[in-house]
């Protein structure tokens, strides 16, 4: 069986699914191995590593991946990959909003009766997302599990203003954990508003594993997590519809 690579290369992390993985690849990248299922092996690697790898990928999405594609015709924009990844999952839903929250952007698509209906992709104002949180956690030497849900939230329209609030509150005695938690609650509320305040959100991306974010978002709507590999699954569905 031919080995195939499907990669979603984001700003900081790349999600990679290898079909018919072999020991050679696994041995080299086992530190980044996440799980395997049937013929699929799942990896999450830093995107800077993806750039250095001596591999051409079969199907790609994400702006960091295009140059590494074997065939540029097999590079898909992230919304197309997302939509193809979720199609089967929501085909019987009357309405479904899928929100993908990335490292520096957020995007949503809406399906009505299993049919693609609407979308939005927010780069500039959605910039206060995953990468911001990662930088803050590193700066304050915290792990994501240190951050617990807070009922209070920061209302902000721009990441710079959010930073100002965090720094201010910490200088007045709030712990960094609590300040970051309020930011995360603010991000959750902003993403709920960005998705047009639906009753339910299907969530994709790294925030699926972040409890403080999920608890915050669940305050506003029902949430079903779809994990970090949805875009890769979309590429696989495109390759083999």
């Amino acid at each position: 069986m031919k080995k195939m690579f499907f990669v979603d290369a984001g700003t900081t992390w790349s999600k990679l699914v290898v079909l018919n993985d072999n020991k050679e690849f696994y041995n080299e990248y086992k530190n980044y191995f996440v799980k395997s299922s049937d013929i699929k092996s799942y990896y999450i690697l830093p995107s800077k590593l993806i750039k250095q790898m001596n591999i051409s990928f079969d199907y790609t999405t994400g702006h960091m991946a295009k140059l590494k594609n074997k065939n540029h015709n097999n590079h898909y924009n992230e919304i197309i990959a997302l939509a193809n990844g979720v199609k089967k999952k929501i085909e019987n839903e009357k309405e479904a909003i899928i929100l993908d929250l990335g490292s520096r952007d957020s995007k949503w698509i809406r399906f009505t009766n299993g049919k693609f209906c609407d979308l939005d992709w927010n780069v500039s104002c959605g910039s206060s997302t995953g990468a911001t949180i990662e930088m803050l956690l590193k700066f304050y030497d915290l792990k994501s599990y240190d951050i617990k849900y807070q009922n209070e939230k920061y209302n902000f329209t721009c990441g710079i203003f959010a930073f100002e609030k965090i720094m201010d509150d910490i200088s007045h005695g709030l712990t960094p954990n609590d300040a970051i938690s309020r930011l995360i609650h603010g991000i959750a509320y902003n993403s709920f508003c960005f998705a047009n305040k639906p009753q339910k959100i299907y969530l994709s991306g790294g925030f699926c594993n972040f409890n403080a974010y999920l608890t915050s978002l669940k305050k506003y709507c029902e949430v079903e997590t779809l994990g970090r590999f949805l875009l890769c699954e979309g590429l696989i569905n495109i390759q083999n519809p």
Partner: peptide, 10 residues
Amino acid sequence: AKIEAFINLR
């Protein structure tokens, strides 16, 4: 990307 997706998905 939005326009590409709209054309591809509709």
